[in-house]
């Protein structure tokens, strides 16, 4: 299975994501600089990594979402390509219009860097296929602007179509306000595109894929992805 990862000025989770992809697939991903205008042929999965692309200027992800490579990313997603956007990558996909809504400043205004608990809300997606439905995972977050916003109609549509991938919950899987780190609408931590092949999420599964990182709850995102897409 072939993977690729976009790299913008200010990306800083691209290498971690590359390690996670390589560990699952056995093949090193291609790293694609944002000034390219085409993606290499034959890619199965494209990663949009975390970081602070373009210094978070204007709005997080806004400048990256208009960079030269994004036309090809839009075409790739339009052809049914799989895209995984993590943290700043989620912000980029939202700004590019590949996922609905907006990611605003955290409600408490603080930059938050810690582990959170997430409930798997759907396994009908290659990226969550490796998990059990309603399983509660521990995954780190590290962001200042992860407060998911969409109007009620969009939120209802996402819920109705089972496109909420992850929700911030307590250890019992209840999406209570105290488990919501950033004020996200309906505790939403990650969402899917209509064709379920584009996932955007604020938490960082690539940071918890090896026991040496203190946990392996992130690893099954990548092994599950391989199992389903390569099958």
């Amino acid at each position: 299975m072939k993977t690729a990862i976009l790299v913008f000025p200010g990306s800083n989770c691209d290498r971690d994501l590359a390690v996670a992809f390589e560990r699952a697939t056995g093949e090193r991903p291609m790293m694609i600089w944002h000034k390219e205008t085409e993606l290499p042929a034959g890619i199965d999965v494209l990663g949009v990594p975390g970081g602070f692309s373009f210094g978070d200027y204007l709005r997080c992800g806004a400048i990256a979402a208009r960079s030269p490579i994004m036309g090809a990313v839009r075409d790739f997603a339009g052809r049914g390509g799989h895209v995984l956007g993590i943290c700043n990558g989620f912000q980029v996909l939202i700004e590019a219009g590949l996922l609905p809504g907006a990611l605003m400043r955290n409600q408490g205004l603080d930059y938050i860097c810690r582990d959170v608990l997430l409930k798997v809300e759907t396994t009908a997606c290659p990226f969550t296929h490796g998990y059990q439905l309603e399983e509660v995972l521990r995954i780190p977050i590290a962001h200042h602007d992860g407060n998911y916003f969409a109007d009620e109609a969009v939120l209802d549509q996402l819920e109705g179509e089972g496109r909420v991938a992850f929700r911030y919950t307590d250890a019992q899987g209840a999406s209570v306000a105290s488990a919501n780190p950033n004020g996200s609408a309906r505790n939403i931590a990650g969402i899917l595109s209509e064709n379920r092949r584009v996932l955007g999420m604020m938490p960082h599964p690539e940071r918890l894929c090896d026991a040496a990182q203190g946990g392996i709850d992130g690893a099954r995102m990548f092994s599950g992805m391989l199992a389903q897409i390569a099958a």
Partner: peptide, 9 residues
């Protein structure tokens, strides 16, 4: 419309 504002919010 294209860049300066995010018209969602």
């Amino acid at each position: 419309e294209k860049l300066l504002a995010n018209t969602v919010i």
